[in-house]
Amino acid sequence: MMKKIMLVLLVSIALLNCKKNKATSDCGSKICTEEFVSVMIKFVDNKGAGAEVKDFNVINQRTGKRITANSSVSTSTTKGVFIVVDDQNKPDLSEQGDDLKITGTSVDTQQTKSVVVKVTGGKCACHIGKISGADQVAFD
């Protein structure tokens, strides 16, 4: 009798876990790579060298919200190179792609430049992906 009770209990727990997992997986089965993707932009001076930039800013044009790439906090970058977004920003982006307005001001010339890049994401995406836009911004 004890074996039957234990068996029923184990089967019940297994069925509850299966239903719970199916309900929480809105994205279906996906096989994703373990790479970590980021989109970068480089600001250069009129000679093509990396430019020192202040007031670097990324705004999602769809939501109006500022985006900060989490990996940019712990990454030592080359002069003028900035991480715009990375895979940790996937939930902030749409599957169709969002226009991200990137702005920076040259420390030397005080000139401000902006460009727009389009990047996909979404909660079910494996990685972000750049669709279009500049890789480099040149100050005069």
Rank of each mutant, 00 (worst) to 15 (best):
D87V: 01
E52W: 07
A125N: 07
S72I: 03
V11F: 15
V44I: 07
K130V: 08
Q88Y: 11
G50Y: 06
I31P: 01
A51N: 09
V85M: 06
M2W: 09
K123Y: 12
L10M: 14
M40L: 10
L93Y: 08
K4Q: 14
K3I: 14
G104I: 02
V37P: 02
D140Y: 13
G133M: 03
P91S: 07
K4R: 15
A69K: 07
D87Q: 01
K4A: 15
S94W: 04
S132L: 05
G97H: 02
D26W: 03
K65Y: 09
N17L: 13
A23F: 03
T78L: 08
G50V: 01
K54P: 00
I41N: 08
S72C: 05
M2D: 14
G80T: 00
A23I: 02
S71G: 01
I102Q: 05
N21P: 00
S72M: 10
S72T: 00
A138W: 10
I5S: 14
I67K: 01
N17R: 09
V37T: 10
N89F: 07
C32E: 11
I83A: 10
T112Y: 11
K101T: 05
V85E: 02
A23G: 02
V8D: 10
M2R: 09
M2N: 13
S106T: 05
N46W: 03
V84L: 09
D135C: 11
I41F: 05
